[in-house]
Design a protein around this nucleic acid. Structure first.
Length: 500
RNA sequence: GCCCCCAUCGUCUAGAGGCCUAGGACGCCACCCUUUCAAGGUGGAGAUCAGGGGUUCGAAUCCCCUUGGGGGUACCA
């Protein structure tokens, strides 16, 4: 593998993924995780998972578990972090959970306060709101007006006496911040346009911009690869890093995954929870392959890649700058390709959770050749195999008598054709009840009656499966067995008689 | 509003000055195969490379402007 990223001292790079457990694993988070993982693998570096749970109100252990489970499902593993050997709070750079790092954040906040690069702000939510409204009226950019930046001792005491609890704001230096982004090249922002932002809330809880910088420092992160939505946050982080005297990591902002209308992919407009895809029967290898190509390509016309192959080829510097629409149809296609590439045994195993529990394992295996090339998602199997577990009555209830009758025939004619088929199949030795024999006999029978094979097969299919669309007919009959086949044929003939 | 980012078929993309009358894939259409549906095969439609200026012998590729789209602008992450 060719290494393209470097660190000041030549040591291996360290990248991280820092999801917030305030929802299930999001497609976008998964893609960012994948890019970080691939970068770490490609460069021979370390990959750290950190849980950003400072927002205790919205964070839950269930979401955290969902994120971890689904990352693992995709095949993404981390060298340090929760649920790895020596991980969680005992790893070399742990704890890897922000809720267990509060003392560190408090210490750094005190440092900033002590050297004057941060200050206590006593403004109330109402006051802040009023300022913002006034700025809006005056058509000025909305930002903190700096009222508490130079409060005297007496003023502070007065506010304290009022019972106000201060937040801590970072005094943003008015300077231009320039950095070399891994995917965008040189970028420049003017921090004098920024207001002083809050780093610790009045209730003592430190905020994202602050903790992320401390965590990355303490976890020795060398390269921060994250979504483009963080690009304009980066100058804030760099200012903080400098104020704290930290090492500045290299940043890389990857393009966003978009809704079909090209806005940032959201729950409102797209299915964003990885779990949902998993439950529908998308294969993790198809998902990985698909996600990798949302914003990157190897520069060739190859498009099927395993995770290992991706790790060998992936280069963060070749990631695109523009956002990519999540094309569900393309995902479907890829999933089908991966399903068809599986052996029958592998597919049967993967299908197990998606088909009725009543279906024995060997039945699934025998079914696979019939449905393999018909599956887009594993979950589609349920409908395809339903006729095998439904009762004869359930199957019969799915169609009306007139649906059995081909365009060029009538009810009586169809009934007698079905009766002929029934007689033929009943006469078959159970040992001959195989797809091959069934097909040749039925074809002969159709010919004798002067029916087109297709017209003859269609009512049989409906009678047997209850559906106009089914896996190949004769393989289905074989799987179903002679007794059930005859019973369902009888039911169909009966329905036709009642209708006539 | 302000700041920043982006811009090749509907979508994902190839393309890093001449190989481009712009290639592939998904989707779409037609035909073939065929017991339904798929899968597979063959072919086709589909991008004046957002528009306009430059630079150059030569630009999808470099520069500028315009337009369009997106992201950010919280005591969320």
């Amino acid at each position: 593998m060719i290494s393209t990223l470097s660190t000041p001292d030549g040591s291996p790079i360290r990248v991280r993924m820092a999801p917030s457990p305030t929802g299930p694993l999001h497609i976008g988070t998964a893609r960012t995780s994948l890019y970080n993982f691939l970068t770490a693998r490609h460069e021979g570096g370390s990959y750290v998972l950190r849980i950003e749970d400072t927002d205790a109100q919205r964070s839950t252990v269930e979401f955290e578990q969902d994120i971890i489970d689904n990352l693992h499902w995709l095949g993404i593993t981390w060298d340090e972090g929760p649920q790895v050997a020596g991980g969680d709070d005992v790893g070399p750079f742990g704890p890897y959970r922000q809720s267990r790092r509060m003392d560190r954040y408090a210490r750094e906040a005190q440092r900033l306060l002590a050297d004057g690069t941060a200050y206590r702000c006593y403004c109330s939510a109402e006051e802040l709101d009023a300022v913002r409204r006034a700025q809006d009226q005056a058509k000025e950019p909305p930002r903190y007006n700096g009222r508490c930046r130079s409060l005297g001792e007496a003023e502070r005491a007065a506010f304290e006496a009022e019972g106000r609890r201060p937040a801590i704001r970072f005094a943003v230096p008015a300077e231009k911040i320039r950095f070399d982004d891994l995917v965008r090249g040189e970028v420049e922002f003017d921090n004098s346009l920024l207001g002083d932002f809050v780093i610790v809330r009045a209730d003592g809880i430190p905020l994202y911009h602050f903790v992320v910088v401390i965590d990355d420092q303490e976890m020795a992160i060398t390269h921060v690869i994250r979504g483009e939505d963080h690009l304009s946050n980066t100058p804030k982080h760099i200012a903080l890093i400098r104020a704290l005297g930290f090492r500045e990591p290299v940043f890389g902002h990857i393009p966003l995954i978009l809704n079909p209308d090209r806005s940032k992919m959201s729950k409102r407009k797209s299915q964003t929870a990885m779990t949902a895809y998993r439950e529908q029967g998308y294969l993790p290898e198809a998902m990985v392959n698909f996600l990798a190509f949302l914003g990157w390509s190897p520069g060739t016309e190859e498009e099927i890649f395993t995770l290992d192959e991706l790790a060998a080829r992936f280069e963060i510097g070749k990631v695109h700058k523009g956002g990519a629409v999540f094309d569900a149809e393309r995902l479907d296609h890829l999933n089908g390709v991966y399903i068809r590439a599986l052996t029958d045994e592998q597919l049967a195993l993967r299908l197990r959770p998606f088909v009725p529990a009543a279906l024995p394992d060997d039945a699934i295996l025998r079914l696979v050749p019939l449905i393999k090339e018909r599956l887009v998602r594993l979950g589609d199997a349920a409908e395809l195999v339903a006729f095998l577990v439904e009762t004869d009555a359930e199957v019969a209830a799915r169609y009306a008598a007139d649906e059995l009758v081909p365009k060029k025939a009538d009810a009586a004619g169809t009934a007698s054709a079905l009766a002929a088929a029934r007689e033929l199949l009943a006469a078959l030795d159970p040992g001959d009840f195989s797809a091959e024999v069934l097909e040749s006999r039925c074809r002969e029978s159709a010919e004798q009656m002067g029916w087109k094979a297709g017209d003859f097969f269609r009512p049989i299919r409906l009678a047997i499966t209850g559906r106009a669309i089914s896996p190949p007919l004769f393989g289905s009959l074989e799987l179903l067995g002679q007794d059930v086949t005859l019973a369902r044929l009888d039911a169909a003939i009966g329905k036709l008689a009642v209708a006539a």
